[in-house]
Write a protein that binds this DNA or RNA. Structure first.
Lengths: 337, 337
DNA sequence: GTGAAAGCGCTAACAT
DNA sequence: ATGTTAGCGCTTTCAC
């Protein structure tokens, strides 16, 4: 059973492939092709299960109907969830998704953008590492829409969707202060990225307002959890006076809790805890961990909506959109002394 | 800056595009093209940053260098991790990955296979729902390699990689029995899939050996956790005599723990717990939950290796491979009365 | 050693 | 209203 082409269809029906093509692309009416013929063609197509070759179509039109999704790591629960939500809506709109993990590696990301370009990916969704602003601007200049999320590159003139990092950290830190904690650490990944900078800024601002001292621990991201755990253990051991900690990301929170466990530090008697990003692991922990919940669905929805807008109206005047969403501080018992 | 094509390169260098193509594809030597010319071409290509159009290449060769990854849900931590590991190796071998979530929906999966076919996806990695055996066989018959994982379809003549579900459940249940538990429940997703059937079988076999009664609870999978949690609560409430529970999947385990929390049932004083699949959430739970750890890296490695083999040696005689891997029972304190 | 030319399956401008 | 035909950018056969 060889695969049929549009010519086979045309020949079999004794019409031209143009006609078939028009019918296939819903331009029958516009081209005033007779109802009867349209029906005959569609019936036959259904009968033999003909499906146009998307590669050929893509070559001809220059569109691939593929969206490139580049995240820090697809295995991270935050990004995996986003990926799932984006997928749903993309497929509903006729787009497929090709993904890759950047590992926050600038060079790797640049290469991957090239790889995606070779395939004429129609649009990009990226949680960008630093240093790819130029590449993103080049894409946008070529008319290929790019939406950044989770963070943005100030020099990249593209749309982005993120949360209010600064306020979220400020608010969480303030909450700890309100509960009477005075030596509050901020444990996060070392990164100059906007989201991490924002969180750090919010944390510091809250402390400053109360005249408290900052204790910042920046972890070098390492795929091997054990390394990060022992770094955090070190930090806690060096700062015995801490009474609370704000984790700047889910991965930091998970490693931090593991570190605390190994040091036999209890929540909240030894350390009160709040972490960015919510997850089962925080909900099921004893006591449940207070978390800054990102509106994941809303993020995904905004990302894909903005991208589809750009895809559908490519020549609309360009003005990069910045969408900043609110988080929710899910207060749980990890704070009650 | 318009994108260059192979013709532009050829024209600029006053040679034919055939020559350029040969050089591009490493056939210069075979075609006895002069060293000097090869170098000149390569230098120029690098200079202008020329990259062949993969769509055109794909149309011509019929190969896309794309692997289709179809999992139950990309947001599930098990599948997300697999996706990450597969991605790594695939990209290293020049393959991109296009993914989709099947939701275990047979019709959706059939449609998605069609969608992937339109794009001439070179090979498939699938955690298949039931009822797509024919589609898989058709792919294999057309010479397109398919590797199933996590489960397999007995009627599908394709390679698969999975764990020893029956033994894993048998062993875990036996461990509970050895610890003195007598009323052991098995809480799992209702599914006729091989992996779930295997787990159920192992559980029952262990009980039978000790003359114990089976308490099986089959949850209908529901994207809304709350529904599943309340179903499990119901079950626990109806069976107050239970002293231990084996969860048949990570999602069942997480929902089960949430249900127990709401019912104020403690581990292990009220119920000893073992769950399939390991995860941070089990490690950080108090007390840490004993888990049946799947060798995720090994699974991913085997899946992609088998697929690459098929891709690289398409005409090698076909004999479907079954790879069954061992799990590890990670014993934690969730069992010690 | 290199080049001309056909053709992969489709779309769309241009006939008719 | 429908057909003819020229590409999209590449690979590959065959000719020189």
């Amino acid at each position: 059973m060889k695969k049929l082409s549009i010519v086979d269809i045309a020949n079999h029906l004794n019409i031209s492939k143009t006609t078939v093509s028009f019918i296939l692309n819903g331009r029958a009416q516009e081209k005033r092709i007779s109802e009867e013929l349209v029906e005959r063609v569609q019936k036959f197509i259904k009968e033999v299960g003909y499906r146009p070759n998307e590669t050929a179509r893509g070559l001809r039109t220059g569109k691939s109907n593929i969206i490139g999704l580049m995240v820090e790591s697809i295995s991270d629960p935050f990004f995996a969830t986003i990926a799932r939500l984006i997928e749903n809506k993309a497929y509903k709109n006729g787009y497929k998704i090709i993904y890759c993990s950047t590992d926050n590696d600038t060079q790797k990301t640049k290469d991957l953008i090239q790889v995606f370009r070779e395939r004429s990916v129609d649009g990009y969704i990226i949680s960008p590492p630093e240093g790819v602003d130029e590449e993103i601007n080049e894409l946008v200049k070529s008319g290929i829409p790019v939406v950044m999320f989770d963070r943005h590159l100030p020099k990249a003139k593209a749309d982005y969707v993120e949360i209010d990092n600064e306020y979220s950290a400020f608010n969480a830190t303030g909450h700890l202060i309100g509960k009477g904690y005075r030596n509050i650490a901020f444990v996060t990944f070392s990164s100059a990225q906007t989201q991490m900078q924002g969180r750090l800024k919010g944390y510091k601002a809250a402390l400053k307002g109360s005249g408290l001292k900052a204790y910042v621990m920046e972890i070098d991201y390492n795929p091997d959890d054990a390394k990060m755990i022992s770094a955090i253990k070190d930090f806690f051991s060096r700062h015995k006076n801490l009474d609370a900690v704000l984790f700047g990301a889910i991965q930091a929170g998970v490693c931090g809790l593991k570190a605390m466990k190994e040091l036999d530090l209890h929540v909240p008697s030894n350390l009160a805890v709040i972490s960015f990003d919510d997850h089962d692991v925080f909900e099921l922990f004893s006591p449940p961990i207070t978390a800054i919940e990102q509106p994941i669905e809303e993020i995904a929805e905004n990302v894909i909506d903005v991208l589809l807008q750009r895809l559908n109206f490519p020549d609309r005047e360009f003005k990069a959109k910045s969408i900043v969403l609110k988080t929710k501080l899910k207060i749980r018992s990890s704070l009650d002394k």
